[in-house]
Write a protein that binds this DNA or RNA. Sequence first.
DNA 1: GTCTATAGGCTGATAGAC
DNA 2: GTCTATCAGCCTATAGAC
Lengths: 190, 190
Amino acid sequence: MEKSKKQIIKEASAKLFRKKGFNATSMQDIAAAVGIKAASLYNHIGSKQELLKELLFNIANAFTSGMNDIEASTLSNIEKLEALIDLHVDLTITYRDSIALITGEWVHLEEPDLKNYLKLRTQYEAQFLNILSACKKSKHIDKNTNIELALYSILSSLHWLYSWYNKNKGVSKIELAKQLKVTLLKGVII
Amino acid sequence: MEKSKKQIIKEASAKLFRKKGFNATSMQDIAAAVGIKAASLYNHIGSKQELLKELLFNIANAFTSGMNDIEASTLSNIEKLEALIDLHVDLTITYRDSIALITGEWVHLEEPDLKNYLKLRTQYEAQFLNILSACKKSKHIDKNTNIELALYSILSSLHWLYSWYNKNKGVSKIELAKQLKVTLLKGVII
DNA sequence: GTCTATAGGCTGATAGAC
DNA sequence: GTCTATCAGCCTATAGAC
Protein backbone atom coordinates (compact mmCIF):
# COMPACT_ATOMS: atom_id res chain seq x y z
CA MET A 1 0.00 0.00 0.00
CA GLU A 2 1.32 3.38 -0.96
CA LYS A 3 1.55 6.26 1.49
CA SER A 4 -1.20 8.81 1.11
CA LYS A 5 -0.20 12.39 0.52
CA LYS A 6 -1.71 13.24 3.87
CA GLN A 7 0.56 10.70 5.52
CA ILE A 8 3.58 12.21 3.77
CA ILE A 9 2.54 15.65 4.98
CA LYS A 10 2.12 14.38 8.53
CA GLU A 11 5.55 12.83 8.57
CA ALA A 12 7.18 15.95 7.21
CA SER A 13 5.33 18.02 9.82
CA ALA A 14 6.48 15.77 12.63
CA LYS A 15 10.08 16.23 11.55
CA LEU A 16 9.73 20.01 11.37
CA PHE A 17 7.71 20.40 14.56
CA ARG A 18 10.35 18.38 16.32
CA LYS A 19 13.22 20.42 14.97
CA LYS A 20 11.83 23.97 15.10
CA GLY A 21 8.76 23.69 17.30
CA PHE A 22 5.11 23.94 16.29
CA ASN A 23 4.88 27.72 16.29
CA ALA A 24 8.15 28.30 14.50
CA THR A 25 7.15 25.92 11.71
CA SER A 26 5.16 27.63 8.96
CA MET A 27 2.85 26.02 6.46
CA GLN A 28 5.36 27.13 3.85
CA ASP A 29 8.04 25.09 5.60
CA ILE A 30 5.84 22.01 5.52
CA ALA A 31 4.81 22.60 1.91
CA ALA A 32 8.43 23.04 0.83
CA ALA A 33 9.36 19.78 2.55
CA VAL A 34 6.82 17.84 0.50
CA GLY A 35 7.43 19.80 -2.70
CA ILE A 36 4.22 21.78 -3.13
CA LYS A 37 2.96 25.30 -2.33
CA ALA A 38 1.47 26.13 1.05
CA ALA A 39 -2.05 26.65 -0.30
CA SER A 40 -2.05 23.15 -1.78
CA LEU A 41 -1.67 21.59 1.65
CA TYR A 42 -5.30 22.42 2.35
CA ASN A 43 -6.44 19.92 -0.24
CA HIS A 44 -5.19 17.22 2.12
CA ILE A 45 -5.54 18.63 5.62
CA GLY A 46 -7.90 20.94 7.43
CA SER A 47 -5.46 23.05 9.39
CA LYS A 48 -2.04 23.17 11.00
CA GLN A 49 -3.68 22.46 14.32
CA GLU A 50 -5.19 19.28 12.90
CA LEU A 51 -1.71 18.04 12.03
CA LEU A 52 -0.48 18.49 15.58
CA LYS A 53 -3.59 16.90 16.99
CA GLU A 54 -3.42 13.77 14.85
CA LEU A 55 0.28 13.29 15.45
CA LEU A 56 -0.09 13.55 19.21
CA PHE A 57 -3.17 11.39 19.53
CA ASN A 58 -1.65 8.67 17.37
CA ILE A 59 1.12 8.38 19.94
CA ALA A 60 -1.06 8.80 22.99
CA ASN A 61 -3.44 6.09 21.80
CA ALA A 62 -0.55 3.72 21.13
CA PHE A 63 0.68 4.22 24.69
CA THR A 64 -2.78 3.77 26.15
CA SER A 65 -3.36 0.62 24.18
CA GLY A 66 0.02 -0.83 25.14
CA MET A 67 -0.53 0.00 28.80
CA ASN A 68 -3.94 -1.64 28.82
CA ASP A 69 -2.53 -4.82 27.31
CA ILE A 70 0.20 -4.95 29.93
CA GLU A 71 -2.20 -4.25 32.76
CA ALA A 72 -4.53 -7.02 31.65
CA SER A 73 -1.71 -9.52 31.23
CA THR A 74 -0.71 -12.27 33.64
CA LEU A 75 2.84 -10.94 33.97
CA SER A 76 4.28 -10.43 37.43
CA ASN A 77 4.56 -6.87 38.66
CA ILE A 78 8.25 -6.68 37.91
CA GLU A 79 7.69 -8.18 34.48
CA LYS A 80 5.06 -5.52 33.87
CA LEU A 81 7.62 -2.82 34.60
CA GLU A 82 9.98 -4.44 32.14
CA ALA A 83 7.21 -4.72 29.58
CA LEU A 84 6.56 -0.99 29.94
CA ILE A 85 10.17 -0.24 29.15
CA ASP A 86 9.87 -2.46 26.07
CA LEU A 87 6.74 -0.55 25.10
CA HIS A 88 8.55 2.79 25.27
CA VAL A 89 11.49 1.46 23.30
CA ASP A 90 9.18 0.02 20.65
CA LEU A 91 7.14 3.18 20.23
CA THR A 92 10.22 5.38 20.26
CA ILE A 93 11.63 3.45 17.34
CA THR A 94 8.33 3.14 15.51
CA TYR A 95 7.35 6.78 15.74
CA ARG A 96 10.82 8.36 15.76
CA ASP A 97 9.94 11.98 14.99
CA SER A 98 6.42 12.40 16.25
CA ILE A 99 7.24 10.89 19.63
CA ALA A 100 9.48 13.88 20.24
CA LEU A 101 6.37 16.05 20.38
CA ILE A 102 5.10 14.55 23.62
CA THR A 103 7.79 16.26 25.69
CA GLY A 104 6.86 19.82 24.80
CA GLU A 105 4.71 20.50 21.76
CA TRP A 106 1.46 19.24 23.25
CA VAL A 107 1.08 22.62 24.97
CA HIS A 108 0.08 24.04 21.58
CA LEU A 109 -3.01 21.88 21.35
CA GLU A 110 -6.25 23.86 21.49
CA GLU A 111 -9.24 22.96 23.60
CA PRO A 112 -10.92 20.57 23.82
CA ASP A 113 -8.04 18.52 22.44
CA LEU A 114 -5.66 19.73 25.11
CA LYS A 115 -7.96 18.55 27.87
CA ASN A 116 -8.49 15.18 26.22
CA TYR A 117 -4.79 14.72 25.64
CA LEU A 118 -3.96 15.47 29.25
CA LYS A 119 -6.65 13.06 30.35
CA LEU A 120 -4.97 10.25 28.44
CA ARG A 121 -1.61 11.19 29.87
CA THR A 122 -2.84 11.40 33.45
CA GLN A 123 -4.56 8.07 33.07
CA TYR A 124 -1.37 6.50 31.72
CA GLU A 125 0.68 7.81 34.60
CA ALA A 126 -1.87 6.57 37.13
CA GLN A 127 -1.72 3.08 35.65
CA PHE A 128 2.08 3.18 35.71
CA LEU A 129 2.03 4.26 39.34
CA ASN A 130 -0.35 1.43 40.17
CA ILE A 131 2.17 -1.08 38.95
CA LEU A 132 4.93 0.54 41.00
CA SER A 133 2.61 0.50 43.98
CA ALA A 134 1.98 -3.21 43.54
CA CYS A 135 5.75 -3.77 43.42
CA LYS A 136 6.06 -1.96 46.72
CA LYS A 137 3.34 -4.09 48.25
CA SER A 138 5.01 -7.28 47.08
CA LYS A 139 8.30 -6.04 48.61
CA HIS A 140 10.10 -5.72 45.29
CA ILE A 141 10.46 -2.01 46.01
CA ASP A 142 11.64 -0.79 49.39
CA LYS A 143 8.95 0.61 51.68
CA ASN A 144 10.86 3.89 52.05
CA THR A 145 11.06 4.55 48.31
CA ASN A 146 9.02 7.49 47.03
CA ILE A 147 7.29 5.85 44.10
CA GLU A 148 5.86 9.10 42.76
CA LEU A 149 9.40 10.38 42.38
CA ALA A 150 10.49 7.04 40.91
CA LEU A 151 7.66 7.22 38.39
CA TYR A 152 8.58 10.72 37.35
CA SER A 153 12.23 9.76 37.06
CA ILE A 154 11.60 6.67 34.94
CA LEU A 155 9.16 8.51 32.68
CA SER A 156 11.56 11.41 32.18
CA SER A 157 14.21 9.03 30.93
CA LEU A 158 11.79 7.13 28.73
CA HIS A 159 10.29 10.29 27.26
CA TRP A 160 13.69 11.56 26.25
CA LEU A 161 14.78 8.25 24.83
CA TYR A 162 14.24 9.49 21.28
CA SER A 163 16.92 12.12 21.67
CA TRP A 164 19.43 9.54 22.81
CA TYR A 165 18.40 6.91 20.31
CA ASN A 166 18.98 9.21 17.36
CA LYS A 167 22.58 9.71 18.41
CA ASN A 168 23.19 6.01 19.03
CA LYS A 169 21.69 4.21 16.08
CA GLY A 170 24.25 1.44 16.39
CA VAL A 171 22.57 0.03 19.48
CA SER A 172 20.03 -2.69 18.72
CA LYS A 173 16.52 -2.47 20.08
CA ILE A 174 17.00 -5.55 22.21
CA GLU A 175 20.27 -4.37 23.69
CA LEU A 176 18.85 -0.91 24.37
CA ALA A 177 15.85 -2.31 26.22
CA LYS A 178 18.05 -4.61 28.24
CA GLN A 179 20.41 -1.85 29.34
CA LEU A 180 17.55 0.50 30.14
CA LYS A 181 15.98 -2.08 32.42
CA VAL A 182 19.21 -2.31 34.38
CA THR A 183 19.81 1.44 34.55
CA LEU A 184 16.27 2.51 35.36
CA LEU A 185 15.24 -0.31 37.64
CA LYS A 186 18.36 -1.62 39.30
CA GLY A 187 20.35 1.59 39.33
CA VAL A 188 23.85 2.54 38.37
CA ILE A 189 25.93 2.09 41.49
CA ILE A 190 26.90 -1.33 42.74
CA MET B 1 18.71 45.87 46.93
CA GLU B 2 15.61 46.34 44.87
CA LYS B 3 14.92 44.40 41.72
CA SER B 4 15.61 46.30 38.54
CA LYS B 5 12.81 46.61 36.04
CA LYS B 6 14.88 44.55 33.68
CA GLN B 7 15.04 41.77 36.24
CA ILE B 8 11.29 41.91 36.69
CA ILE B 9 10.85 41.67 32.93
CA LYS B 10 13.21 38.72 32.75
CA GLU B 11 11.35 36.84 35.44
CA ALA B 12 7.99 37.48 33.81
CA SER B 13 9.43 36.32 30.49
CA ALA B 14 10.77 33.12 32.00
CA LYS B 15 7.36 32.30 33.37
CA LEU B 16 5.66 32.95 30.03
CA PHE B 17 8.29 31.23 27.89
CA ARG B 18 7.95 28.23 30.12
CA LYS B 19 4.19 28.13 29.93
CA LYS B 20 3.54 29.01 26.29
CA GLY B 21 6.91 28.63 24.61
CA PHE B 22 9.21 31.34 23.26
CA ASN B 23 7.51 31.78 19.90
CA ALA B 24 3.99 31.73 21.26
CA THR B 25 4.82 34.43 23.80
CA SER B 26 4.41 37.94 22.39
CA MET B 27 6.01 41.11 23.65
CA GLN B 28 2.48 42.20 24.50
CA ASP B 29 2.12 39.19 26.78
CA ILE B 30 5.33 40.09 28.58
CA ALA B 31 4.40 43.77 28.80
CA ALA B 32 0.97 42.95 30.19
CA ALA B 33 2.54 40.72 32.83
CA VAL B 34 4.66 43.60 34.12
CA GLY B 35 1.95 46.23 33.68
CA ILE B 36 3.26 48.35 30.81
CA LYS B 37 2.80 48.58 27.04
CA ALA B 38 4.89 46.46 24.69
CA ALA B 39 6.81 49.41 23.26
CA SER B 40 7.96 50.41 26.74
CA LEU B 41 9.80 47.13 27.16
CA TYR B 42 12.46 48.39 24.81
CA ASN B 43 13.55 51.00 27.33
CA HIS B 44 14.87 48.10 29.41
CA ILE B 45 15.83 45.39 26.98
CA GLY B 46 17.23 45.19 23.47
CA SER B 47 15.06 42.47 22.01
CA LYS B 48 13.00 39.39 22.74
CA GLN B 49 15.95 37.28 21.66
CA GLU B 50 18.14 38.99 24.26
CA LEU B 51 15.72 37.90 26.98
CA LEU B 52 15.95 34.27 25.96
CA LYS B 53 19.71 34.48 25.64
CA GLU B 54 20.27 35.97 29.08
CA LEU B 55 17.91 33.57 30.80
CA LEU B 56 19.56 30.54 29.23
CA PHE B 57 23.14 31.63 29.77
CA ASN B 58 22.47 32.50 33.40
CA ILE B 59 21.49 28.88 33.95
CA ALA B 60 24.17 27.38 31.77
CA ASN B 61 26.89 29.36 33.53
CA ALA B 62 25.58 28.32 36.92
CA PHE B 63 25.79 24.67 35.88
CA THR B 64 29.26 25.09 34.44
CA SER B 65 30.49 26.83 37.55
CA GLY B 66 29.00 24.19 39.84
CA MET B 67 30.46 21.38 37.78
CA ASN B 68 33.92 22.92 37.83
CA ASP B 69 33.80 23.25 41.60
CA ILE B 70 32.80 19.63 41.99
CA GLU B 71 35.41 18.42 39.55
CA ALA B 72 38.16 20.32 41.36
CA SER B 73 37.06 19.08 44.79
CA THR B 74 38.60 16.26 46.80
CA LEU B 75 35.35 14.33 46.96
CA SER B 76 35.35 10.66 46.01
CA ASN B 77 33.83 9.76 42.66
CA ILE B 78 30.60 8.59 44.22
CA GLU B 79 30.43 11.72 46.35
CA LYS B 80 30.88 13.76 43.18
CA LEU B 81 27.86 12.08 41.66
CA GLU B 82 25.88 12.90 44.75
CA ALA B 83 27.13 16.48 44.68
CA LEU B 84 25.94 16.79 41.09
CA ILE B 85 22.45 15.74 42.12
CA ASP B 86 22.58 18.36 44.87
CA LEU B 87 23.65 20.91 42.29
CA HIS B 88 20.67 20.16 40.07
CA VAL B 89 18.27 20.27 42.99
CA ASP B 90 19.72 23.60 44.14
CA LEU B 91 19.56 25.23 40.73
CA THR B 92 16.10 23.85 40.04
CA ILE B 93 14.82 25.51 43.18
CA THR B 94 16.80 28.72 42.71
CA TYR B 95 15.81 29.30 39.11
CA ARG B 96 12.39 27.66 39.14
CA ASP B 97 10.95 29.07 35.91
CA SER B 98 13.95 29.78 33.75
CA ILE B 99 15.41 26.33 34.31
CA ALA B 100 12.44 24.92 32.43
CA LEU B 101 13.80 26.53 29.27
CA ILE B 102 16.79 24.23 29.06
CA THR B 103 14.70 21.27 28.01
CA GLY B 104 13.29 22.78 24.86
CA GLU B 105 13.40 26.52 24.34
CA TRP B 106 17.14 26.75 23.66
CA VAL B 107 16.42 25.73 20.06
CA HIS B 108 15.14 29.28 19.52
CA LEU B 109 18.50 30.83 20.22
CA GLU B 110 20.08 32.48 17.19
CA GLU B 111 23.66 32.10 16.12
CA PRO B 112 26.25 32.54 17.45
CA ASP B 113 24.51 32.12 20.79
CA LEU B 114 23.12 28.74 19.85
CA LYS B 115 26.55 27.40 19.11
CA ASN B 116 28.00 28.80 22.32
CA TYR B 117 25.15 27.43 24.35
CA LEU B 118 25.56 23.96 22.91
CA LYS B 119 29.29 24.14 23.57
CA LEU B 120 28.63 24.73 27.28
CA ARG B 121 26.14 21.90 27.34
CA THR B 122 28.40 19.44 25.56
CA GLN B 123 31.23 20.34 27.88
CA TYR B 124 29.02 19.81 30.92
CA GLU B 125 27.93 16.41 29.70
CA ALA B 126 31.52 15.39 28.99
CA GLN B 127 32.54 16.30 32.52
CA PHE B 128 29.60 14.37 33.92
CA LEU B 129 30.53 11.35 31.84
CA ASN B 130 34.12 11.57 33.07
CA ILE B 131 32.94 11.17 36.62
CA LEU B 132 30.80 8.17 35.69
CA SER B 133 33.80 6.73 33.88
CA ALA B 134 35.94 7.14 36.98
CA CYS B 135 33.27 5.31 39.00
CA LYS B 136 33.43 2.46 36.53
CA LYS B 137 37.19 2.30 36.80
CA SER B 138 37.02 2.22 40.60
CA LYS B 139 34.46 -0.62 40.36
CA HIS B 140 31.61 1.37 41.82
CA ILE B 141 29.80 0.88 38.54
CA ASP B 142 29.60 -2.52 36.90
CA LYS B 143 31.89 -3.03 33.92
CA ASN B 144 28.94 -4.03 31.71
CA THR B 145 26.97 -0.86 32.39
CA ASN B 146 26.59 1.49 29.43
CA ILE B 147 27.58 4.75 31.08
CA GLU B 148 26.53 6.90 28.12
CA LEU B 149 23.01 5.57 28.54
CA ALA B 150 23.24 6.02 32.31
CA LEU B 151 24.35 9.64 31.82
CA TYR B 152 21.48 10.35 29.48
CA SER B 153 19.02 8.71 31.84
CA ILE B 154 20.21 10.60 34.91
CA LEU B 155 20.28 13.92 33.07
CA SER B 156 16.79 13.40 31.66
CA SER B 157 15.42 12.96 35.16
CA LEU B 158 17.36 15.91 36.53
CA HIS B 159 16.36 18.19 33.66
CA TRP B 160 12.70 17.47 34.25
CA LEU B 161 12.94 17.89 37.96
CA TYR B 162 11.35 21.33 37.81
CA SER B 163 8.11 19.86 36.48
CA TRP B 164 7.93 17.44 39.35
CA TYR B 165 9.05 19.88 41.99
CA ASN B 166 6.29 22.33 41.15
CA LYS B 167 3.68 19.67 41.80
CA ASN B 168 5.28 18.53 45.06
CA LYS B 169 6.19 21.68 46.92
CA GLY B 170 5.71 19.93 50.23
CA VAL B 171 8.93 17.97 49.84
CA SER B 172 11.95 19.65 51.39
CA LYS B 173 15.07 20.23 49.38
CA ILE B 174 17.08 17.89 51.57
CA GLU B 175 14.54 15.09 51.40
CA LEU B 176 14.19 15.51 47.64
CA ALA B 177 17.94 15.27 47.06
CA LYS B 178 18.18 12.24 49.30
CA GLN B 179 15.42 10.37 47.52
CA LEU B 180 16.77 11.28 44.12
CA LYS B 181 20.17 9.86 44.99
CA VAL B 182 18.56 6.56 45.87
CA THR B 183 16.31 6.43 42.83
CA LEU B 184 18.84 7.57 40.24
CA LEU B 185 21.94 5.87 41.58
CA LYS B 186 20.83 2.78 43.43
CA GLY B 187 17.71 2.05 41.44
CA VAL B 188 14.15 1.23 42.30
CA ILE B 189 14.00 -2.53 42.53
CA ILE B 190 15.46 -4.40 45.49
C1' DG C 1 10.29 55.95 31.11
C1' DT C 2 5.78 55.77 29.50
C1' DC C 3 2.66 56.31 25.87
C1' DT C 4 0.36 56.25 20.75
C1' DA C 5 1.08 55.41 16.14
C1' DT C 6 2.95 52.88 12.76
C1' DA C 7 6.23 50.53 9.80
C1' DG C 8 7.33 46.25 7.59
C1' DG C 9 7.12 41.48 7.50
C1' DC C 10 5.27 37.07 8.19
C1' DT C 11 1.32 34.06 9.30
C1' DG C 12 -2.72 30.66 8.45
C1' DA C 13 -6.15 30.21 5.54
C1' DT C 14 -9.43 31.12 1.42
C1' DA C 15 -10.98 32.10 -3.55
C1' DG C 16 -10.88 30.93 -7.89
C1' DA C 17 -8.31 29.89 -12.45
C1' DC C 18 -6.55 25.88 -14.74
C1' DG D 1 -4.90 18.70 -6.93
C1' DT D 2 -1.94 22.29 -8.13
C1' DC D 3 -1.23 26.98 -8.73
C1' DT D 4 -1.35 32.54 -8.05
C1' DA D 5 -3.31 36.16 -5.67
C1' DT D 6 -4.91 37.91 -1.67
C1' DC D 7 -7.00 38.79 2.90
C1' DA D 8 -6.97 39.89 7.59
C1' DG D 9 -4.44 39.57 11.59
C1' DC D 10 -0.57 39.39 14.39
C1' DC D 11 4.25 40.00 15.21
C1' DT D 12 8.78 42.62 16.68
C1' DA D 13 10.61 46.78 16.76
C1' DT D 14 11.10 51.93 15.99
C1' DA D 15 9.81 57.06 16.03
C1' DG D 16 8.54 60.68 18.40
C1' DA D 17 5.25 63.25 21.70
C1' DC D 18 4.89 63.98 26.55
